[in-house]
Amino acid sequence: MTSASHLGVALATVGQSSAVVIGSNKLIGLAFWLVVLAALGTLEGLSRLTRVPVPTASDIVARYLRHPVVRAGAIAVWLYAGWHLFSH
């Protein structure tokens, strides 16, 4: 095997391991965010469908974001999140 082909094999190995890291990171991230979404969905479902004393998201908004300025701030943060996640 020539030194050039050795170099080629080495580069391919580095590329593969990097791709594996990227792939596993994506899967870890996907799993984490799906768990978070599932947890929030479960809380909302529990509060609406059972007698478990967990507030719904609407109850929390109505209770803690009842001041007009706070509500306007929350809507601004919501708009920023949309800009950051979907158009930026």
């Binding site: 965010w33 929030l40 809380l43 004393p53 967990v54 507030p55 109850d59 929390i60 209770r63």
Partner: peptide, 20 residues
């Protein structure tokens, strides 16, 4: 009427959002 919010329940929401 304002809804009565169970503090422990609200804390669970807050904990999940903070971890995220």
């Amino acid at each position: 009427p304002l809804p009565i919010v169970n503090l422990a329940g609200a804390a669970i929401w807050l904990a999940i959002i903070l971890v995220a």
